[in-house]
Amino acid sequence: MEYDYQFVPVGEQSLNIVFPEVIDAAENRAIQSLARALLDTDEGIIATIPAYHTLTVNFDAFRTSFTELTNKIENVIKNHALLKNDDKKHIIELPVCYDEEFGIDLEAVIKYGKTTFEELVRLHTETPYLIYMMGFMPGFAYMGSVSEKIAMSRLKNPRAKVPAGSVAVAGKQTGMYPIEAPGGWRILGRTPVKLYDPAHPEPRYHAGDHIKFTAISKKDYYYIQKLDLKGSYELKELV
């Protein structure tokens, strides 16, 4: 593996594998791949939590210890051929309505980028975004990287309530709010798709997947929302 890393104990039952602190798609893919590989080993690993540049590993302290486990992880890293180039690429299409009713911060971001509405939508929907990690709440995907032009930093004072389904940017990151929550990201639009449902909590996408936004009209927004509520809307997988 081409990345430097070090092991840091986080508790008597957890450790971090820390890679260089950058937002880098290739490095993150290696981390995602390692996260899966470690779960497949039988070394007392309970859970792995991949993030931008870290992999948190929770383990059973009665089966293994920090020293023992780090030795084994080192071997996994050495022998795991997929680490460098894990090509399984899922691209999931997510419809977004960039209407000004939903996109509370559209005006501010257009001004920030000295651009037009059409250009902003084009830039935000142009490329698939890698999900670097899931966090904050179920269904919240931290994705990147958006074009510099619309990469407006988050609000100084977060809003008390961001509506469920809001699609937003924060610097070069982009993501969706699955449920109503406080938040400071700049809101560009809203997806009609329910991203978190306590009755069916299984996530519809995972870290390592890609999301490609596609712009829809307000009419389509309500149509898809209706279908989705009935459970008859499937997210389209592009690859």
């Binding site: 508790g11 971090n16 602190e21 937002i23 931008y52 540049h53 870290t54 948190t56 929770n58 966090g135």
Partner: peptide, 11 residues
């Protein structure tokens, strides 16, 4: 400015 990482009970 730290990049977010996984949390652990008792952090």
């Amino acid at each position: 400015n730290m990049l977010s990482e996984g949390t652990v009970l008792g952090n």
